[in-house]
Design a protein around this nucleic acid. Structure first.
Lengths: 206, 206
DNA sequence: GTCTATATGCGGATAGAC
DNA sequence: GTCTATCCGCATATAGAC
């Protein structure tokens, strides 16, 4: 048995700070997405990332700074994804952006972490970042995607309802409630299968 | 100096359990609306209600039960308000229901407490209640208001964006950001003045 | 009905070893 | 780069007086 095998068993898997950082941000995104800023603990995040709790704090300074990094990273993903859609053409832009947004659900907790930040607008440090993030998306829709105020609004409305339904885990009721079923079908023209699939996998985790 | 004056100074203002209960629920609604379930403390709620922290816990058993009562009470207000609109006629139903919804912002934290519950769908006790509440509103729109699936969906989309903008305190940016200004105007056809007014008063509190 | 005092547990953060 | 041990503060909840 090689040394490599031994250090896999008692893992002190050193890696570059940058990589570890990304790993923790991903884990934190999932945990914050589920429990929100206050509800999530640095210990949960650490376990999800496979590192020790003090290490998480050490790397990001405070839980608050970690949360800020999580939501700023989430925003980067959203805008990157939207710009990729834009680069592919102008046909059906609204539908394709909507589709891209739903696809972001694959990154667990990404949209929900943001959603949690949106309802903490009163917080003196989270609030301003959250507003800025939201406004950046709005600016993208207006200036880059060329939406008018009404179209931009419509798009955001749909996005916020989607976030809410995901946060609610409404997909859990898909089979048990006709109303839930109907609502989900109306809210997600396509992509319903993705939502249900992700819903099941996260039920399995928990 | 009379005894009455003394007991005003050291106030032990006994009141009926029911009244005190309502007072605390109101205070809790405001605090939960601002900080969410995990972020709010029973002590903040107690101070907002003008009672001691242990009394709050004593009266509701646990913080969790208090939160559940807050969101169920919020739902009662929403449905009561919607049914009142319905009783006044069928003209312009969508707009009038929307308007009634915005008016509920007057009850501080009512819509936001619900919103916070919506993003905690993974919680084993909050989640089911939150889903049920959301589905009750949907059922109202479909069965009582006579909306079709698409109209119901549209209505909920608008509601969720409103909740989000309020949670974000986007009205804080009304004067400083053109984008925020435009967005708010598009999101609230009428009633923008109400939002701005409430925004100012809550800035004053904090 | 309401308070004061307090027990208890948990979570964020720090110190320091390896 | 990463861990273990631990401190400290805060928040929920309990006990019991008035």
């Amino acid at each position: 048995m090689s040394n490599a095998a031994v250090s896999e068993h008692q893992p002190i898997p050193r890696m570059k700070s940058e990589d570890r950082r990304e790993l923790i941000l991903e884990a934190a995104t999932g945990v914050f997405g589920q429990y929100g800023y206050y509800g999530a603990t640095t210990d949960q995040i650490a376990r999800a990332a496979g590192v020790s709790q003090p290490y998480v704090v050490r790397m990001f300074g405070t839980k608050e700074r970690l949360f800020i990094e999580v939501i700023e990273r989430a925003l980067v993903f959203i805008l990157r994804s939207f710009r990729a859609v834009l680069a592919e053409g102008d046909q059906d832009l609204r539908a394709r952006l909507g589709s891209a947004y739903v696809e972001l659900l694959r990154q667990r907790g990404l949209l929900l972490s943001l959603m949690h930040s949106f309802v903490l607008g009163g917080d003196p440090v989270i609030g301003p970042r959250a507003r800025q993030g939201f406004l950046e998306v709005y600016a993208f829709l207006r200036d880059e995607a060329g939406f008018g105020p009404d179209d931009a609004n419509r798009f955001l409305e749909g996005g916020m309802l989607l976030n809410t339904l995901v946060g609610l885990r409404m997909s859990d009721e898909f089979e048990t409630s006709d109303a839930a079923n109907e609502m989900l079908c109306a809210a997600l023209p396509q992509k319903l299968d993705l939502l249900l699939e992700l819903g099941k996998s996260q039920q399995a985790d928990a």
